[in-house]
Design a protein around this nucleic acid. Structure first.
Length: 448
DNA sequence: ATTAGGG
DNA sequence: CCCTAAT
């Protein structure tokens, strides 16, 4: 299989591989973010006020309330306004302040594929200019297609097949760089170079993301992990991560940001989608990227006049886009006190919708028949061991919806009315099949 | 890490 | 599917 090239934001700038030129997009984008940030900020404030009524204003928040507020700030609050996830604010002093936030992905069914905060940050001391989306020609890393082939060791004896991936470019969503306003262009160039070098110069590791979750278990096969050519390659992503020995450039002595929960160690990194899917969002840390390019899905970069000021003489090399991203491993972050200039990014995206197949439902039903409800982990292990994308929570949820569907009248169910003799309709088969089974197994669902 | 439920 | 409180 061959996949289209990743899209490029109109702000992505690809530098000539050997160039030391300053990306004009840097400044252009800077303006952009300020504007967006202001607007979003207002919205946030209002939303927050609205919801914070639940807490007595006259009383100082208790520890519990404080936690609730924080949670609110870090989850639903942001969820309510997805477009303002990540941005910078213009401060009175002319600097850039960023708002931190996070998104927590939840645990997977087994091993260590749990709770990953896809954030990456990197900053330098001096000043506080935040930049991102800069493109840097990358000859080695992104140029050559990579192929991955693995054996399918499915116990079911399924025919093994190769999984082919073509990585056309590595995108680094963000890279935080700080330089004084009085810095020269030359120094800026050097700073950028330094940042990139810091990221790429050290030991680099590649991480694998599947549906926004980091796959940590290296011993599992692709099929066990849920990666198969006919499956969800579109949700497969890779990350560039600095090796474990990279030391932070320096320390910052500012107090931790309020929104950074203790113990919530941000993790990497640079990310890109292996297969840009027109219907799904790019896993990028930059919301503006999401907004501006993920949907348009125009893989063919359009050099329009409106982008002239950004592109100017920069030569595009889309297939080698290498956008800076915060690069620092968790340990390094732990040593560096957070700073409000730091901006978090989210790479975890909502998983794609994957309707249960008839066979899956059957397997689920059978497992529940045998194990009963409430033992989702066991159900997972028994019937979905090799379905990497089905977590026990997914199974629990599916069962929930199945039971609900079975309870309601056929008229209340979704879908076009299906002739009684048309038993091939998957959903009908699924539902009626379930109903029958449930009738015979009322012990499983007494209420039915 | 799991379970149970609401969103 | 997501998010989370409670285990």
């Amino acid at each position: 299989m061959t996949f289209p090239a990743p899209f490029n934001s109109d702000r992505d700038v690809k530098l000539p591989s050997r160039s030391d030129s300053v990306p004009n997009a840097y400044f252009s984008r800077f303006r952009n973010d300020i504007k967006l940030g202001s607007r979003d900020d207002d919205e946030k404030v209002s939303r927050f006020n609205k919801h914070s009524n639940r807490f007595k204003a006259s009383k100082p928040p208790t520890l519990t309330e404080d936690r609730r507020i924080r949670k609110f700030l870090t989850s639903k609050y942001w969820k309510a306004a997805p477009k303002m996830k990540d941005f910078e604010h213009l401060r009175a002093d002319g600097g850039i302040k960023s708002v931190n936030h996070k998104r927590k992905t939840y645990c997977n069914y087994d091993n260590c594929q749990y709770d990953t905060l896809y954030k990456r940050r990197k900053f330098f001391d001096r000043s506080s200019i935040v930049t991102s989306d800069e493109g840097i020609g990358s000859g080695s890393v992104s140029n050559s297609p990579e192929k991955i082939k693995k054996e399918n060791n499915s116990s079911s004896g399924a025919m093994s097949h190769g999984v082919k991936l073509r990585i056309k470019s590595f995108r680094i969503p963000e890279l935080y760089i700080e330089v004084p306003e009085t810095a020269t262009v030359g120094s800026l160039k050097r700073t950028v170079l330094e940042a990139v070098t810091a990221l790429l110069g050290g030991r680099i590791r590649v991480g694998v993301l599947l549906q926004g979750k980091k796959v940590r278990d290296d011993s599992r096969t692709l099929s066990q992990t849920g990666i198969s050519s006919e499956d969800n390659l579109d949700t497969l992503g890779f990350t560039l991560e600095p090796g474990p020995v990279i030391a932070p450039p320096q320390l910052c002595s500012e107090e931790p940001p309020l929104l950074l929960p203790c113990g919530a160690a941000p993790q990497n990194l640079t990310s890109f989608r292996a297969t840009p899917d027109p219907d799904t969002k790019i896993a990028t840390a930059d919301p503006t990227l999401l907004t501006n390019s993920a949907k348009a899905m125009d893989c063919n970069y359009k050099h329009t006049s409106s982008q002239t000021d950004i592109l100017t003489d920069k030569k595009l090399s889309e297939s080698r886009a290498l956008v800076p991203v915060p690069a620092m491993n968790v340990k390094a972050l732990a040593v560096v006190p957070a700073n409000q200039k730091i901006r978090k990014s989210e790479l975890a995206q909502r998983r794609i919708r994957r309707p249960f197949s008839v066979s899956e439902v059957e397997a689920l039903v059978q497992a529940v028949e045998e194990l009963g409800t409430g033992r989702w982990r066991d159900v997972k292990l028994r019937a979905f061991e090799n379905a990497g994308h089905r977590t026990y929570v997914d199974l629990k949820d599916k069962w929930k919806t199945l039971v609900h569907t079975a309870k309601i009248s056929p008229q209340q169910r979704r879908g076009e009315p299906v002739p009684k003799n048309c038993w091939t309709g998957s959903w009908l088969l699924m539902l009626t099949g379930l109903s029958i089974k449930l009738k015979n197994k009322s012990k499983i669902i007494p209420e039915l």
